[in-house]
């Protein structure tokens, strides 16, 4: 947990800075709106965490989100009756893409960076080949309710986020989480102690695919249909996970910190907007802060590594 502490300090600092600029921010409606906006990225980061902690990468989530939204729009085409079956289909597609990523990475031994880069190319190409270059169709109001609407004062996406977070925390505390971290730390040692490495890693990819499906459902409702909806999300999710102190290469870090990393990234965007640094300079400031945050987090690394050595 000591490793995760810095991200919570940074997050708290950012939230205070936002609250100073905008005093209404900490009141329930505004804060819930912030959480709602952050929900897709937080869910993606949670999914990406499972892959990263097992020692792999998933670069395909951004184009998977785009693909899912485009598929949903094309299949639903405004009809309410099609909403629920398509929602189910999206979840299945997400898990299936994750399964393919996992199998190609573990059984065919293709580095996950390349596997998921290939999936990225295939997904973005295939979806637009199918729809003829631009997204077609429309989402039904029922579908969009999940991303836009709310149950009483609490948005649906916040409730979904809470459920996803609870499930992720439970999974990491269960035996699965321990074998996953062991695999990421040293897959040979894990395999020799009886962990089915291929199966565990494939499960991690499936979780990432599922999280992309859920994020796509929320984003489709929240932002609507476009060909750019998932653009750059894979890098944002990986950045969020690394901001949370999770080591690229696997074996270290907590899922709560990864999700806090995603909140931090979203808080950063909000803050930059508030201070009028929107649009052009935003990526530059983001880049500086990401490097600085990871660099600060890395300062402790040699000590903990020395402590871990026999």
């Amino acid at each position: 947990m000591r490793r995760a502490l810095p991200i919570f300090v940074v997050l708290a600092g950012l939230l205070v800075a936002i609250a100073i600029a905008n005093p209404y921010f900490l009141e329930p409606p505004a804060f819930l709106a912030f959480v709602k906006r952050a929900a897709p990225l937080v869910i993606l980061a949670a999914g990406q965490y499972f892959v990263i902690v097992s020692g792999e990468f998933d670069l395909s989530v951004g184009s998977l989100v785009t693909a899912e939204v485009v598929i949903a729009a094309r299949l639903i085409d405004g009809s309410a009756a099609a909403t629920w079956p398509v929602l189910g289909l999206l979840i299945v597609v997400g898990a299936l893409i994750g399964l393919v990523n996992g199998i190609v990475t573990t059984l065919l031994r293709v580095p996950s960076f390349i596997t998921t880069l290939g999936t990225l190319l295939i997904l973005s190409g295939a979806v637009f080949l199918w729809t003829g270059g631009a997204p077609r169709g429309a989402l039904s109001p029922q579908f969009r309710e999940l991303g836009r609407g709310s149950l009483g004062p609490v948005p649906w996406s916040v409730l979904i986020l809470v459920a996803v977070a609870a499930a992720a925390i439970y999974a990491m505390r269960a035996g699965f989480g321990h074998t996953l971290v062991a695999t990421g730390d040293n897959d040979r040692a894990a395999a020799l102690s009886g962990v089915r490495v291929a199966r565990v890693r494939t499960a991690a990819f499936m979780i990432s695919g599922l999280s992309a499906a859920v994020a796509a459902i929320l984003l489709g409702g929240f932002a609507g249909v476009s060909a750019q909806v998932g653009q750059g999300l894979e890098f944002q999710a990986i950045t969020a996970v690394v901001l949370g102190g999770v080591a690229l290469g696997g074996g270290r870090g907590s899922v709560v910190a990864a999700m806090a990393g995603a909140f931090t990234l979203e808080a950063l965007f909000t803050l930059l907007n508030l201070y009028g640094i929107s649009g052009a300079l935003e990526p530059a400031v983001q880049g500086v802060i990401i490097i600085a945050a990871v660099a600060l987090g890395a300062v402790n690394l040699p000590r903990s590594r020395a402590a871990a050595a026999p």
């Binding site: 690394v242 690229l248 530059a284 400031v285 983001q286 990871v294 890395a298 690394l301």
Partner: peptide, 27 residues
Amino acid sequence: LIVTRLRVHAFIATLGVALIIRGALDE
């Protein structure tokens, strides 16, 4: 230097530098 001195993973370091350049270009 970011990779070696600050011990930031190359993936994040070069992604960050890419974002910085992008900001300068967009501006």
